[in-house]
């Protein structure tokens, strides 16, 4: 599961994040931190070793690690998008067409 540094990207779904700080506290390479607004911020994305701790220990399913080469899931085809952001994307699309 673990891979070399700089091979993965980290995405936080801010709408779902409650800022408990579990991912930031237990991240082995200190990629994440809690910002002043009480949400998780990705500080050093290049340091991520893709251990997957944050993803399976996030109580709110608000964080995702994916390979760097892949297209970011939240900008891809709307049907492939994580449903967490799908509704937001629909809203943006509808407001643009009007």
């Amino acid at each position: 599961m673990a891979s070399k540094k700089g091979e993965s990207r980290v995405k936080v779904f801010l709408d779902w994040c409650k800022g408990c700080g579990i991912c930031a506290a237990f991240c082995p390479s200190k990629v994440l931190s809690v910002d002043k607004q009480g949400k998780i911020r990705v500080d050093h994305e290049d340091e991520c070793i893709n251990c997957g701790f944050c993803e399976i220990h996030c109580p709110d399913f608000a964080i995702m690690v994916y390979p760097r080469e892949e297209r970011p899931p939240f900008e891809a085809n709307i049907d492939d998008v994580a449903p967490a952001t799908r509704e937001e994307l629909h809203k943006i699309r509808n407001s643009n067409s009007k």
Binding site: M1, S8, G52, E55, F61, I63, Y66, P67, P73, A82
Partner: peptide, 12 residues
């Protein structure tokens, strides 16, 4: 790992 999050969303 992104598949784990996608998988969870299939069941919510």
């Amino acid at each position: 790992m992104a598949k784990v999050t996608q998988l969870i969303h299939n069941y919510l």
